[in-house]
Amino acid sequence: SELMNSSKLIRMLEEDGWRLVRVTGSAHHFKHPKKPGLVTVPHPKKDLPIGTVKSIQKSAGL
């Protein structure tokens, strides 16, 4: 199965306009000026399962 580095996923979010608002432990929480909701990324993780990545991307509207 495909894995993604959390840094790469965070870069994709930031390029889309998401900004880090809070860190709780290894959970990084992002908000967007125009899009609704809060997106949480486990970080640092070298090997996020593709299912997790897809669900984060979906929440972020990517």
Rank of each mutant, 00 (worst) to 15 (best):
13 L>N: 00
59 S>G: 07
19 R>N: 10
61 G>K: 06
30 F>I: 00
35 K>F: 03
18 W>Q: 00
57 Q>W: 14
39 V>H: 01
6 S>G: 04
17 G>S: 04
58 K>R: 10
52 T>K: 07
43 H>V: 02
52 T>V: 15
35 K>W: 02
6 S>V: 03
28 H>C: 05
10 I>H: 02
38 L>D: 08
50 I>Q: 13
47 D>Y: 15
60 A>H: 02
22 R>L: 12
1 S>P: 12
59 S>H: 11
33 P>G: 08
58 K>C: 09
29 H>V: 12
11 R>T: 13
36 P>C: 08
21 V>G: 04
19 R>T: 14
32 H>R: 01
19 R>F: 15
11 R>L: 10
33 P>W: 09
59 S>N: 13
16 D>G: 05
35 K>M: 03
29 H>D: 07
34 K>G: 07
30 F>A: 00
56 I>T: 02
59 S>W: 06
29 H>M: 14
28 H>T: 05
21 V>P: 00
42 P>A: 05
57 Q>H: 07
26 S>F: 12
58 K>Q: 15
20 L>Q: 06
18 W>F: 03
57 Q>R: 09
36 P>G: 08
32 H>K: 02
55 S>D: 15
44 P>Y: 04
49 P>A: 11
37 G>I: 03
18 W>R: 00
14 E>T: 09
49 P>H: 06
56 I>R: 01
7 S>Q: 10
39 V>E: 01
16 D>F: 06
35 K>T: 04
6 S>M: 02
27 A>Q: 15
21 V>E: 07
61 G>Y: 04
36 P>D: 09
37 G>P: 03
3 L>M: 11
23 V>F: 06
50 I>L: 10
41 V>C: 05
41 V>F: 04
59 S>F: 08
24 T>P: 01
14 E>Y: 12
13 L>A: 01
32 H>V: 00
8 K>L: 12
25 G>R: 15
45 K>P: 04
22 R>E: 11
35 K>Y: 02
41 V>S: 00
33 P>Y: 09
49 P>C: 06
4 M>L: 07
20 L>K: 06
62 L>W: 05
17 G>M: 04
47 D>V: 14
15 E>M: 10
59 S>D: 14
19 R>I: 13
52 T>A: 07
19 R>V: 13
13 L>I: 09
26 S>Y: 10
57 Q>G: 04
50 I>C: 07
4 M>K: 08
18 W>C: 00
40 T>M: 12
40 T>K: 13
61 G>P: 01
47 D>N: 14
17 G>H: 04
9 L>E: 01
46 K>W: 11
9 L>S: 01
35 K>A: 03
55 S>V: 07
19 R>M: 13
24 T>K: 08
38 L>T: 12
43 H>Y: 04
44 P>M: 03
49 P>W: 05
15 E>G: 08
56 I>E: 02
17 G>N: 05
15 E>A: 09
11 R>Q: 13
58 K>D: 14
24 T>L: 10
49 P>L: 06
3 L>S: 12
14 E>Q: 10
40 T>W: 15
38 L>I: 14
38 L>M: 10
22 R>I: 11
23 V>Y: 07
12 M>P: 00
23 V>H: 07
31 K>Q: 13
1 S>Q: 15
25 G>F: 14
7 S>D: 13
53 V>P: 01
3 L>I: 12
50 I>S: 12
23 V>M: 08
56 I>F: 01
23 V>R: 11
36 P>R: 09
25 G>V: 14
55 S>F: 11
24 T>W: 11
27 A>L: 14
42 P>E: 06
42 P>Y: 04
51 G>K: 14
44 P>V: 04
51 G>F: 08
30 F>N: 00
20 L>R: 10
8 K>S: 13
3 L>G: 14
13 L>F: 01
59 S>K: 15
19 R>Q: 11
24 T>E: 11
34 K>C: 10
61 G>A: 06
5 N>W: 06
41 V>N: 00
30 F>V: 00
21 V>A: 10
11 R>A: 15
46 K>M: 11
36 P>T: 09
25 G>S: 13
61 G>I: 03
18 W>D: 00
30 F>Y: 08
15 E>L: 11
51 G>I: 08
53 V>M: 04
27 A>E: 13
9 L>K: 01
42 P>W: 03
13 L>V: 05
51 G>W: 13
48 L>I: 10
8 K>Q: 15
22 R>K: 15
20 L>D: 02
52 T>E: 07
5 N>E: 14
38 L>A: 07
53 V>W: 07
2 E>Q: 11
14 E>W: 10
55 S>H: 15
15 E>S: 09
57 Q>L: 15
1 S>G: 13
48 L>F: 05
19 R>E: 10
27 A>W: 09
38 L>S: 07
6 S>R: 03
30 F>K: 00
7 S>P: 04
24 T>M: 10
20 L>Y: 03
1 S>R: 04
42 P>R: 04
47 D>T: 11
8 K>W: 14
20 L>S: 05
29 H>I: 14
4 M>N: 09
58 K>E: 15
18 W>K: 00
46 K>I: 11
26 S>V: 12
2 E>T: 10
12 M>V: 09
24 T>C: 08
52 T>R: 06
15 E>K: 09
23 V>K: 14
54 K>T: 09
44 P>A: 04
29 H>P: 01
46 K>F: 13
33 P>N: 08
